[in-house]
Design a binder for these strands. Structure first.
Lengths: 120, 120
DNA sequence: TCAATATATCAACATCTATTGAAATATGGA
DNA sequence: TCCATATTTCAATAGATGTTGATATATTGA
């Protein structure tokens, strides 16, 4: 995860429909959901609107897609999400995250480093 | 953390200067940095530009400020950052985050719940 | 091959956002 | 009180973004 990727990801997440899509897919799990089902969950958004937002999310690396028959199945890109969080919180409190919030400390210390701990 | 707050936070983080400011303050720790020092770290950005971005970040709840003499000291709002992450990852994989990335699982399971686990 | 389903692409329009430069406000010291 | 420092506010401008409706592409089954 570099700065440009992080900016694209945050921009993708800053739009209501797209944030809802990502959260839906995060809960849906690795098997994902077809574009049509996602659109229905978004107050029946038009196909062009869904396609626009899904392509923004995919371009930002936050979701991945695969074709299954006539449907395109979208699913959350969990490593990218974790990488984004790691990017944001890197070197929290000068490497002493115990002074920060417990969850932040847990993310950057107790848990496995997700990526990019070699100052990319 | 509700949806509107999360959208504001992600929008704030989707701008290059603001993302750099937040990362600088995340590493700086709770004591924070004066606006002028932050501006110098941002390629000497103009004071009005810095003020614009800092006020966006503060309005989004990602940083807090306090006055010290002539300076305004800004620091990262660690609980808000952790809350944002928790909001994004809530109910990851239908509550079975072990299927997701280890860091994600750690965030939503091993670590203390940050906020909002009662479906606000 | 034809029709139906599922999704993506495109152009036009309206809206939102960041930057600039000038002016205003607040604080501290001489 | 006067001046210098530190930061914010404001109006104008340029550029980026989301929605719509129409059209195009891909897949499947009859």
């Amino acid at each position: 995860m570099n700065e440009k990727q992080a900016l694209d990801a945050f921009a993708a997440l800053s739009q209501e429909t797209r944030l809802r899509i990502v959260r839906l897919l995060v809960t849906a799990g690795p098997q994902g959901l077809p574009a049509g089902a996602i659109g229905e969950a978004m107050d029946g958004a038009s196909s062009s609107r869904m396609s626009f937002h899904l392509s923004q999310l995919e371009h930002a690396g936050l979701v991945v897609s695969r074709r299954e028959g006539r449907s395109i199945i979208y699913s959350a890109a969990y490593p990218a999400l974790a990488g984004l969080i790691a990017f944001l919180m890197r070197d929290c409190c000068q490497g002493h995250p115990e002074v920060c919030n417990p969850a932040v400390a847990a993310l950057s210390c107790q848990c496995e480093p997700v990526e990019d701990h070699a100052h990319a």
